[in-house]
Structure formats: C-alpha cells, structure tokens
C-alpha cells in the first residue's frame, strides 16, 4: 500500500514536471512557427512586388515588341462586331475580330 502511494506520488510529480517541460518546448515551437510565418509573409510580399513589376504594362509592351516582334493593330484592323442572337436580341455580346486576319483566313 505504502509502495503504491509512493509510486502514484512519483508519477504525479513526473507528469507535473513533464507537463511543465513540454509547455516550455511548445512555447519555443510556437515562437519558431511565428518566426517562420513572418519569414513566409515577407517572401509573399517580395513575390507580390516582383509579380507587380513583371506584369507592368511598360515591361509587357517592351517584351511584346522587342522579343516577339508584335505591334499595335493599325487603324481599321480591329472592328467590334455586335452579335445578335435569338436569345439576346439586344446584342449583349460583343465579338472582336481583326479585319485582316478574317480576310486572310488566319485565326
């Protein structure tokens, strides 16, 4: 009986100490994860800025013209066609076609 009481007492002490140690360990883990979150947020912001810079119209126009040889459509090359369907007589849909592409059969 005495032995059992001592064992239970020791177990309780062990659980108490283990709980305390684990709390400290988890505390450090929480801090580490918080730090990781901050680092990841910083990386996200950095990528946002890079994405925004790379998708700038200035840069896209430069790449399109200098790298891919594209150019702005000349006057008359783009016409807006109002498509009238049975379902939408009010012509809600607009279709863009390039005039020279249509005439040359290139799409």
């Amino acid at each position: 009986m005495k032995m059992l009481a001592v064992t239970i007492g020791l177990c309780l002490v062990f659980v108490f100490v283990w709980e305390r140690v684990d709390m400290v360990r988890l505390g450090y883990q929480v801090e580490r994860l918080k730090h990781e979150k901050v680092v990841l947020e910083r990386e996200r912001d950095e990528l946002k800025v890079k994405f925004s810079a790379l998708s700038s119209p200035d840069r896209i126009a430069k790449v399109a013209t200098e790298k891919f040889g594209m150019s702005l459509p000349q006057p008359g090359q783009v016409v807006m066609v109002q498509s009238k369907t049975k379902d939408s007589p009010a012509s809600a849909v607009e279709l863009r076609i390039a005039r020279n592409d249509v005439l040359n059969g290139r799409r």
Partner: peptide
C-alpha cells in the same frame, strides 16, 4: 475598352470567315 465603332461592319466579312 471594347467600345464598338460607329461604322457598320460589312456582312461580306463575316461570310469570309472560316
């Protein structure tokens, strides 16, 4: 902005489309 031209589109163009 996709604003339509005031000029009417010739129907012949549509028939050329394949």
């Amino acid at each position: 902005l996709g604003v339509s031209s005031a000029e009417p589109v010739k129907l012949a163009m549509a028939s050329n489309r394949r």
